[in-house]
Design a protein around this nucleic acid. Structure first.
Length: 703
RNA sequence: GCCGGGGUAGCUCAGCUGGUUAGAGCAUCGGAUUCAUAACCCGAAGGUCGGCAGUUCAAGUCUGCUCUCCGGUACCA
């Protein structure tokens, strides 16, 4: 979009069921914050909105887990996340929450318009209903036995043990988690958003109009979705936590969280307008508003497909870009909450920012490193060693050191004041440096405009590097020793320090979107007001006035010591170890079976036998399936088993396994499976075969 | 399996519509220097651009096949 009148920048609404980690930061919040700060520095009309996403079934679930109420959960995590963002200099213009009445009202209005315009479909279906609690049960509120792994910790949407996606109908022995009773099937009506109707619009808008300006990771994923066929999506669901559907016939139903959450951007904008006595409407209705969504790649489909369709139907503007980032790994592995392999924002804040030698410099160190490794084009990796290297050899040695030596020399050679620039004696080095400052402004700006934050920050550091080179060529400390014999050298010294100081001011300005605390500290040292950081001053040589006295230098960044790094790495590893070794917290009543008690006769219905794998091959065109021939002593059978991710076909041959031999046969990928192989599965989802301690004859009964 | 995105120096990445000896930063090694947080500066070394084949006067850059990593999706009794 050329020359937008105003900007609306959004960062993904974090879900209020736990603390967020540095992957979230690198993925959405830091890039969004950099962009918003840049626009503010350019005096653009910009609103940067975010807020807590507080609906959805995971909230009441989390409440149960923590033995409290949903309200307490969202209040707790809303405050915590808000605080963490604040501690890391993520400067939203408004941080709202979807539990606010303003949001409910906004979401209701949104739904109502779509409904009244006939843009939604309705469908009746049978859903589980808890008669005692007199409510329909969300998938998450039904538990039962997993048809896949047999675990009793399966829910209507997913099995906790094997992670398989489920539908409530698949559960064996479904039970309501509310009453503990067996639910009944009951007719229910829901509203759907028919995405398929908008396929052509999406194709034109994304694949044609934004062919060149969207990241190809983003448009590629969109194409994948569109080509895969766009299904209608339920907008409502039977749940009591969320925005009630504003229809009389929809009592007990709420808007699906995916529907109400992005509308949170709109309600946040409204709240901002109220707080600042402004009009929110142009930000969502005027075509000269540039809307940019910052999200992680898991959110692409919502922000590029679903929400735009909603916005179009509702008469709003569409996002100009969705610069989604990929994922951030940690020390060689994916970040994972369940395995405790992660770095929470709060942990960093406590271990670095809140320490005596911490503060803003540590905030900026993290912002620096997370930008430097930002997964803009592919997944990237956070390592503590990398963090240390980036801080020590770039921030400290190049950037911090340049500023420091400039200030020290200025105090030693120029009496603590900004020296004069003697234009008549400018040499090639001076001129080149001046040109480099102007050029840096252009390249940094270009990067920022195109969401290349990693490259932009590199350009800033590179300018500091050029400053070091320049100073080295000029060697004012050498000139100072000769000035007694050659007084004319004093002008060279002045020119060098003048340019270095103006360069320092420029560095403060250019680095400000990325490292705001550092920019402020530099302003303090230069005794200038923050207005100097206005982008229009960039590239110029007049940021500091001649003769102006500056403060004593203070170091911009401290070094990261080796022991801090080893401490963090050990902490990460031992934390992960703990979760691996300690089983899930034992409930107060130990090991009450979740399944119904059965009699011996029931058990006896299952025939279990040992078998030896004779041969084994991978089922073609299936990732998880192995086809096995097993010897049951008296017979041989073919079994198809979903263990290919854990065992290779070769290593299965010769192994003894336990087989359910009287299970009804089932065809998979065209092969009839005549039994089932038993496996144990740990928390991480790793499968282990169940087998006799010592080999026994094939066909031995297991009981 | 299908769809999408990657695989370029030890690490993190640039390389647009094909064109001279494939680039940068960090790390490493050597040198120089002292204004500076043993910092800076100069220099060197380091790559059969995942593999194979093809198109072309010319391919990291185009085509086909293949291996591998990351998502999504199907298979999981």
């Amino acid at each position: 979009m050329t020359d937008p009148k105003r900007y609306l920048v959004t960062a993904a609404l974090p879900y209020a069921n736990g603390l967020k980690h540095v992957g979230h930061l690198a993925g959405a919040y830091i890039p969004a914050d950099i962009y918003a700060r840049y626009l503010r520095a350019r005096k653009k009309d910009v609103v940067f909105v975010c807020g807590s996403d507080e609906h959805g079934t995971a909230i009441p679930i989390q409440a149960k887990k923590e033995n409290t109420t949903p309200r307490a959960i969202i209040d707790k995590y809303h405050e915590a996340m808000k605080q963490d963002f604040d501690d890391l200099s993520i400067q939203f213009d408004v941080y709202h929450r979807t539990s606010e009445p303003l949001h409910h009202e906004t979401a209701r209005e949104f739904f109502t318009m779509l409904h009244e315009n006939g843009d939604l479909e309705t469908k009746e279906s049978e859903q589980y209903y808890d008669e005692e609690a007199a409510t329909f049960l969300a998938d998450r509120y039904i538990k039962g036995t997993c048809p896949n792994c047999g675990s009793d910790r399966a829910f209507g949407d997913q099995c906790e043990t094997c992670g398989r996606t489920l539908s409530p109908d698949e559960l064996i022995n479904p039970l309501s988690t509310l009453s503990g009773k067996t639910p009944v099937k009951k007719q229910t009506k829901h509203w759907y958003l028919p995405l398929g109707k908008h396929e052509q619009f999406l194709r034109d808008w994304i694949l044609r109009d934004h062919k060149d300006d969207w990241r190809h990771t983003v448009s590629g994923q969109c194409r994948s979705w569109i080509d895969g066929g766009l299904q209608s999506r339920a907008v409502t669901r039977d749940l009591d936590w969320g925005v009630p559907v504003p229809l009389e016939e929809a009592a007990g139903k709420v808007l699906y969280v995916w529907f109400d959450a992005p509308i949170g951007y709109i309600s946040a904008t409204k709240q901002w307008a109220l707080n600042n006595n402004r009009d929110w409407k142009p930000y969502w209705y005027d075509n000269d508003t540039k809307l940019v969504h910052f999200v992680g790649k898991d959110n692409i489909v919502f922000h590029c497909i679903i929400f735009p369709v909603m916005l179009k139907l509702h008469g709003n503007i569409l996002p100009d870009n969705v610069p989604a980032n990929e994922f951030l790994n940690l020390e060689g592995d994916k970040m994972s909450t369940s395995r405790n392999w992660k770095l929470d924002m709060r942990d960093y804040i406590n271990d670095f920012v809140k320490k005596d030698n911490g503060g803003g410099q540590c905030v900026d160190m993290l912002r620096y490193y997370l930008t430097q490794i930002a997964p803009e084009t592919k997944d990237s990796e956070f390592t503590w060693k990398g963090f240390q290297d980036a801080v020590n050899s770039e921030l400290v040695s190049i950037f911090g050191n340049f500023v420091n030596r400039t200030f020290v020399l200025m105090h030693k050679l120029c009496a603590g004041k900004v020296p004069k620039l003697h234009e008549a004696v400018l040499d090639d080095n001076d001129k080149q440096m001046i040109a480099d400052i102007a050029a840096a402004k252009e390249s940094v700006e270009n990067c920022l405009e195109n969401y290349r934050f990693r490259d932009g920050l590199f350009q800033v550091i590179d300018l500091a590097r050029k400053g070091n080179q320049y100073m080295q060529k000029k060697e004012p400390w050498i000139l100072a020793k000769q000035v007694a014999e050659k007084p004319e050298l004093q002008q060279q010294i002045h020119n060098c320090l003048h340019i270095c100081l103006q360069l320092t001011a420029n560095l403060a300005l250019l680095v400000n979107p990325w490292l705001p605390s550092t920019a402020q500290k530099m302003c303090y040292m230069m005794k200038v007001v923050e207005k100097m950081l206005d982008w229009e001053n960039a590239g110029k040589l007049k940021l500091l006035s001649v003769g102006y006295a500056l403060r004593e230098p203070q170091l911009l960044f401290r070094k990261i010591e080796d022991d801090e790094i080893t401490y963090q790495v050990n902490k990460l590893k031992s934390g992960a170890l703990q979760t691996n070794e300690t089983p899930a917290p034992v409930p107060e009543k130990p090991a009450v079976p979740a399944k119904d008690i059965i009699q011996f006769d029931d058990f006896a219905k299952i025939e279990l036998k040992t078998a030896t794998v004779i041969s084994c091959e991978k089922v073609p065109k299936a990732d998880k399936l192995l086809k096995l021939e097993v010897d049951l002593g008296t017979e041989k059978r073919t079994i198809v088993s979903g263990i290919a991710l854990h065992y290779t076909a070769e290593e299965m041959v010769g192994k003894q396994v336990v087989v359910v031999t009287n299970l009804a046969p089932r065809k998979m990928k065209g092969i009839e499976s005549q039994g089932m192989i038993l496996c144990a599965e740990d928390k991480s989802g790793k499968l282990q075969l169940v087998k006799p301690e010592n080999p026994v004859d094939p066909g031995s009964n297991v009981s």
